[in-house]
Structure formats: structure tokens, C-alpha cells
Amino acid sequence: MTDVSDPWNEYARDFGARLRNARAERGLSQEHVAHAAGLATFTYRKLERGESNPGTPANPRLHTIVCLAEVLDLSLSDLLPQPPDGIAPGR
């Protein structure tokens, strides 16, 4: 299990909140967004919670992120939070 103070946990939760808020603003269901982006509903629900597995921050593929941005009519910069401070590239 990862440490809850891990900045990537916070990043993944922020990403999930951005997904959830954008979906709600558009009046879309989780199922609609998931299927339009080519994901299983279960997978999408985990992304909205910011997790991959319990205790593990979400780490979606680039293809998934781009598809979600398109479905939600968002730019990538609006969907993705700022990277955590102090994280070395490649970590």
C-alpha cells in the first residue's frame, strides 16, 4: 500500500475530481463517459476515485486520458492537474 502523503496519491485524486466535476457539469453518467471513451464502467469509476487498485494511485494510459478529454470536451491542460512539486522526471 502506498503512503497517503505520497504526492501522486493527491495528484490522482485531483485528476479524479476533475473527471467527476466535468462529467457532472455535462449531465453525463459514468457509464456514458466510460463507454464513449472505450473503457469499462468499473475502470472509469476507479479513475474518478483516483485509484488503480485500493491504495494505489490511478495511472491511466495516455490514450485513455486523451479519449476522456475528448468525450468531456476538455483540453488536456484543463483535465490534468499540475504535477506535484519536487518530483523528479521519470518517477
Rank of each mutant, 00 (worst) to 15 (best):
E31N: 13
I65F: 01
M1E: 12
R13T: 14
G50S: 06
H63G: 07
E48N: 06
P84G: 01
A34D: 03
R26V: 03
Q82W: 00
L19V: 02
D3E: 11
A34I: 02
L79Y: 04
T2M: 10
T64D: 06
Q30D: 05
A88K: 15
L72I: 02
L62E: 04
D78I: 07
D6S: 10
D14S: 13
G50K: 10
E31K: 15
S52F: 12
P84K: 04
P57R: 08
L79P: 08
A36W: 02
P81L: 05
N9P: 00
S29M: 04
N53S: 13
S75R: 13
C67A: 15
K46W: 09
R45Q: 14
T43H: 11
L62H: 08
R49Y: 07
G90Q: 02
D78S: 15
L47I: 07
Q30V: 02
N53D: 12
P81K: 04
H63L: 07
C67H: 14
N21E: 15
V4W: 09
E70V: 09
F42S: 14
L76R: 10
Q82C: 00
N59E: 12
Y44H: 03
A36K: 09
Q30L: 09
H35N: 10
H63N: 10
R91I: 10
F42V: 14
Y11D: 05
D3H: 08
T2L: 13
E70A: 12
V66W: 10
A58W: 14
E70I: 11
G50V: 09
P83W: 04
D3T: 00
A34K: 00
S52Y: 13
R13S: 12
S29F: 06
